[in-house]
């Protein structure tokens, strides 16, 4: 479990501030995180593995504080982070080395490492590009590579910051297919920041950040049903929900779809 306890973060300037944010991520949970730009989503995500250290409050990963050396190492091993721009996390000169990077860092013996890298290359359909520089891949291939480099570490928690915003619908579906598979057995959890309401509907829980606070938290269908509040938070509601609501307001019978 990831437990966020009363964290606050302030930067100089008015944006990106978190105020007394508390919540838990339990294994088996599929969480969408929405909020307008500047609401604190990226800061919150960076707090979860200690990339940003909160000014006050604490984050516990499986009971270990992110502020301790062992807790911070544990966070880095157990949490897989995927960012919006895969380029932000590319470090190596070839696809193969990129996937191997994390495993090398934890000192996995070479034969095992090579096995795992092969497995990742196949699973993410990157085998033809193993010797290619990541920068020559297309946007979608780079995002698959970012996922592969995270998956190869076998994390318990996936934290994804708008991972699909540059992807075509099919690769988006790939990301969800991948997450669905990872969630089988209920031993993992994910939290995904997104601007797309349809993606939030595929999760079990939707958290909305507004002004650095959690403004709503619940099943996505319920959270979105308060369309006025969502408008205030600067969040788009799924078109289907907005139109069903419109039909109800106008007194038109909405067939069950």
């Amino acid at each position: 479990m990831i437990e966020v306890r009363d964290i606050s973060v302030s930067y100089p300037g008015p944006v990106g501030v978190l105020r007394d944010v508390s919540f838990r991520i339990r294994k088996g949970e599929r969480i969408a995180l929405m909020g307008c730009n500047g609401s604190g989503k990226t800061t919150l995500i960076r707090c979860l593995n200690g990339l940003v250290m909160p000014g006050s409050g604490d984050v516990l990963i499986d009971g270990r504080s992110i502020r301790s050396v062992s807790g911070s190492l544990h966070a880095r091993n157990r949490i897989g982070m995927v960012f919006q721009e895969p380029d932000d996390q590319m470090v190596a000169v070839t696809v193969e080395r990129e996937i191997a990077f994390g495993l090398e860092n934890i000192g996995l013996p070479r034969p095992q490492m090579l096995d795992r890298v092969d497995e990742a290359l196949n699973r993410f359909r990157l085998a033809p590009y193993r010797g290619v520089s990541p920068h020559l891949l297309s946007g979608g291939e780079r995002q698959r590579l970012a996922l592969a480099a995270v998956w190869v570490m076998h994390p318990d928690y996936y934290i994804l910051d708008e991972p699909t915003s540059l992807l075509d619908p099919e690769t988006k579906a790939d990301v969800f297919g991948f997450l669905d598979e990872e969630m089988e057995g209920g031993n993992r959890a994910f939290l995904m920041a997104t601007q797309y309401p349809e993606e939030a509907l595929r999760c079990g829980r939707l958290m909305v950040l507004f002004g650095g606070r959690i403004a709503a938290d619940g099943p996505p269908g319920e959270v979105f049903s308060d369309t006025d509040a969502m408008a205030g938070f600067g969040i788009r509601v799924p078109a289907g929900m907005e139109l069903s609501r419109f039909m109800k307001e106008q007194g038109f019978a909405v067939p069950t779809l």
């Binding site: 099919e170 579906a173 078109a239 139109l243 067939p255 779809l257």
Partner: peptide, 21 residues
């Protein structure tokens, strides 16, 4: 075949149409 879909508002209307509206 291209892995694309229609806009979400159109999908909603298509589903109404399938229900006979």
């Amino acid at each position: 075949q291209s892995g694309l879909e229609t806009p979400s508002c159109m999908r909603f209307m298509t589903s109404l149409k399938m229900k006979g509206l």
